[in-house]
């Protein structure tokens, strides 16, 4: 069979071969658009950093007069108009630790079950749906639940324990979600390899899955520390108070059933509820709150980098 093959389109006529690779009007236009696009993206990135830098600088400048170790370790005094932030600083540390002691084990273990054991069924679907929805519930709703469930029903009263449990309920779904994500990142092939040597699921989880997902799991938990430390609503009704003096420089100053002060709420009180508070005190409180949150986040990053460097594949 003889066929006539004619190209459907012939190459454009080029009069002068030496001009073949020189920019045309159209390619110059394309390059211009490229430069504009690049510039816009770059400016937007800068814009993102700008507020952070401004906030930090502004806060530090305003807070400078009160910032000192003394500020951290003394209680507020003279109706909040003087002194430091020892009591409000220690409070969040208590509730964050207590709440994570509850939510981290439950969350991680539940996530392991959901990701490693549970098969797709209506039951697991309901649980997964509940987790997602719970994570989306506004914190003030958690607060009201906490008041009903812990303060009144469980008769804990307004206390460190009640506030911690409320925060635990708030952080639990997010910990479950982040843990599941970390577990999911471990390639299925490793699990198959284990199962095919006759390893049980627990041996697989213990030997391979957890060691390779621990960095993601811990990062997820630590990020909840900063979230829990900064929340105001859930603790406002469940245990945080306007003022409570505790012994200074004593890290065991609060008991589980004590009411407590918290940085976020303290800041709110200083700036709206108490007239005549020196400006520097407010800003000092804000700096400490911000510093605490940034420190925890930085810790999460360092930990993640460290564990990832030891990651085994």
């Amino acid at each position: 069979m003889a066929t006539d093959i004619t190209p459907s389109s012939s190459p454009t006529e080029i009069t002068d071969p030496s001009l073949m690779f020189t920019a045309t009007e159209q390619s110059r236009k394309k390059q211009l658009m490229e430069n504009i696009a690049r510039a816009i993206f770059f400016v937007m990135t800068l814009l993102m950093i700008l507020p952070l830098v401004l906030i930090v600088v502004y806060l530090f400048v305003k807070a400078a007069p009160v910032l000192s170790p003394e500020f951290l370790f003394t209680n507020p005094a003279k109706g909040m108009r003087a002194g430091g932030i020892w009591a409000p600083l220690l409070g969040p540390i208590y509730i964050v630790i207590t709440s994570l002691l509850v939510s981290a084990p439950i969350g991680v273990l539940a996530a392991v079950y959901l990701n490693e054991y549970a098969r797709a069924s209506w039951f697991t679907r309901i649980i997964n749906l509940a987790v997602v929805n719970l994570a989306g519930v506004p914190s003030i709703v958690h607060a009201l639940f906490g008041v009903g469930a812990f303060v009144y029903f469980a008769k804990m009263g307004r206390s460190v324990l009640a506030a911690s449990l409320t925060l635990a309920i708030m952080t639990l779904p997010v910990i479950i979600a982040s843990t599941k994500e970390a577990l999911n990142a471990v390639p299925m092939a490793f699990r198959e390899a284990c199962w095919n040597t006759g390893a049980t699921r627990w041996q697989t989880i213990r030997g391979i899955v957890l060691p390779n997902s621990i960095s993601g799991i811990l990062t997820g938990i630590i990020l909840q520390v900063s979230r829990a430390a900064g929340e105001t609503a859930p603790i406002m009704f469940t245990g945080a108070v306007f003022f409570k003096a505790i012994s200074e420089r004593d890290v065991f100053a609060y008991g589980l059933f004590d009411r407590f002060m918290a940085l976020s709420m303290h800041l709110y009180q200083l700036s709206t509820q108490v007239p005549g508070v020196p400006e520097a005190l407010e800003y000092g409180t804000a700096v400490v709150l911000l510093g605490a949150v940034l420190t925890v986040n930085a810790l999460a990053i360092v930990l993640r980098v460290y564990l990832r460097s030891r990651k085994r594949w």
Partner: peptide, 21 residues
């Protein structure tokens, strides 16, 4: 017992899957 079965019947996969150890 599935674990005993898999001990006696080993499997090699398409993508080599050594464990990350």
């Amino acid at each position: 017992s599935l674990t005993e079965l898999r001990k006696n019947v080993g499997m090699v996969f398409q993508r080599p899957n050594p464990l990350p150890i």
